[in-house]
């Protein structure tokens, strides 16, 4: 049987290495997501504040982060920030910072949207019942917002994971880089390995993101939005 190249995947620790590379991406995505949730919640609440300066500053932050391609942000942080601060910023850390900044902005906007979607009469009724403003937030607004927020936040996780595929461009050894190493290593014996390796990576990303997307859809239906 002529060598198709698929056997490259099962040679040595190649498959384990690919999965290890994928884990690097996932780890960065999930850590960034955790930071984004923690920082995005207060940010979203603050964005609904009536304080104009607070709103302005947050809005500037949101738009600045969102208008530029994530890759450009990665470049700016990875290549430039180290020169600015003298701090040795590894590719992983630069990626984590950029994704956390971006995720916080997105998350904040989702929270803002969820809070704004609460009908005015909810506030009025709560106030009429004698709840203080903070009580209104914690007992009335946030629980209802959370229902709307959950599917959107889960969706943000898949976006985050997909975006981590960019970090190969700042030299992080993740699943794509491992794939390239395998392809290069087998260049002479299995010239067609590229097809299989890239197809595998395609599939791996799909296998990770698809269930999460489905979860988001299911949540959306279940919470009847």
């Amino acid at each position: 049987m002529p060598a198709s190249g698929i056997e490259v995947l099962f040679e040595g620790r190649n498959l384990v290495r690919l999965l290890g590379g994928l884990w690097t991406s996932l780890w960065i995505a999930l850590s960034a997501m955790a930071v984004s949730v923690v920082l995005g919640l207060p940010m979203g609440v603050l964005m609904t504040s009536r304080h104009r300066l607070v709103k302005l500053v947050l809005r500037i932050y949101l738009e600045a982060i969102r208008v530029l391609p994530q890759l450009v942000l990665l470049f700016v942080f990875y290549f430039d920030l180290t020169l600015v601060t003298g701090v040795n910023l590894s590719g992983e850390l630069a990626a984590l910072i950029v994704f956390a900044l971006w995720g916080t902005a997105e998350m904040g906007d989702l929270v803002r949207g969820a809070i704004s979607a609460i009908p005015r009469h909810q506030y009025q009724s709560a106030a009429a019942l004698g709840l203080r403003p903070t009580q209104v937030q914690f007992h009335v607004v946030l629980p209802q917002s959370a229902r709307r927020l959950l599917p959107l936040a889960v969706n943000l996780v898949t976006r985050m994971i997909k975006t981590t595929s960019l970090i190969v461009l700042i030299g992080v050894v993740e699943v794509l880089k491992v794939g390239q190493q395998i392809i290069d290593r087998n260049r002479f014996d299995f010239p067609d390995a590229a097809l299989w390796v890239y197809a595998t990576i395609f599939l791996l990303y799909f296998l990770v993101c698809f269930p999460i997307s489905r979860l988001a859809q299911a949540l959306e239906r279940k919470l009847d939005l």
């Binding site: 302005l56 500053v57 809005r59 500037i60 932050y61 738009e63 600045a64 208008v67 530029l68 700016v76 430039d80 920030l81 600015v84």
Partner: peptide
């Protein structure tokens, strides 16, 4: 610093 500044300046503009 000025590259980061540029990003921020742009942000102000949008904001």
């Amino acid at each position: 610093a000025s590259t980061l500044g540029l990003v921020l300046a742009a942000a102000c503009l949008i904001g």
